[in-house]
């Protein structure tokens, strides 16, 4: 299995006078198509780690290698393209644009790259909305949806450009257990159907125990890294 994402000797230090080491020499690699979960207490550095994997944050030292290419050598625009095409983000706070409808939000990553929306693309977006069980509310304004619906819309949005990697930070963090189960099943279904690599931060054991691999981060270090099989 080839590694889609590799982290080599990642350190992250905040502050210049009072230094706080958030990540301490992290080495990780993720196989293409795998379903991974990252657990750890709040403040353990797991969100920072995810943001570094998603090219949103920069490590103080160390290398991030996506598809075999070290991202340190990429321009800002190239990084934007990577985020647009290769990575899908799902955050704890759904982060939909309130000015747009659910369907328009789903189509935004496509429009960033291509401008106008083709008929096929629109149908594909509707299909993803159906996949997340929201085909009836595609034209609702995103602010007029429940938390679970918004989160599922954000998942559809993360999928629209068929990214190779989906990075999710507490995707079910503020949802009830029913919605959590629905969303977990959805993510797993996408993982199996499209071979998308998932890296999910969660404190929810029901999600973590269903992953292929669990990485526990404690005080910025990998405390445990176990695989199911």
């Amino acid at each position: 299995m080839n590694n889609i994402l590799e982290l080599k000797n990642i350190n992250k230090i905040y502050g210049s006078t009072i230094k706080t080491q958030v990540l301490n020499n992290i080495n990780l690699s993720f196989e293409s198509g795998s379903f991974n979960s990252i657990i750890g207490q709040s403040g353990s550095g797991k969100s920072t780690l995810l943001n570094i994997m998603g090219t949103l944050d920069k490590p103080s030292s160390g290398e991030v290698i996506i598809n075999g290419i070290n991202i340190a050598r990429m321009t800002k625009n190239r990084l934007s393209e990577i985020r647009n095409k290769s990575i899908g983000f799902v955050f704890q706070f759904h982060y939909l644009l309130p000015e747009f409808t659910a369907l328009e939000n789903v189509l935004l990553p496509y429009r960033i790259e291509n401008g106008a929306v083709t008929k096929e693309m629109r149908e594909k977006a509707v299909e993803y909305m159906r996949l997340v069980g929201l085909e009836k509310v595609i034209n609702n304004n995103s602010t007029k949806m429940s938390g679970g619906q918004q989160q599922r819309t954000a998942i559809a949005r993360a999928l629209i450009n068929n990214p190779q990697i989906i990075l999710a930070d507490e995707p079910t963090g503020n949802l009830d257990s029913n919605s959590t189960e629905t969303i977990y099943n959805l993510l797993r279904d996408i993982n199996e159907r499209y071979g998308t690599t998932f890296i999910i931060i969660t404190h929810d054991r029901h999600i973590a125990e269903k992953a292929d691999r669990i990485i526990e981060i404690t005080d910025g270090k990998i405390n445990l890294d176990i695989k199911k099989q």
Binding site: I39, R205, A208, E209, I214, E216, N223, L224, I226, K227, K228
Partner: peptide
Amino acid sequence: SNFYNIIVTK
């Protein structure tokens, strides 16, 4: 049995 419990076992 459940591999998630390896964490607490450790």
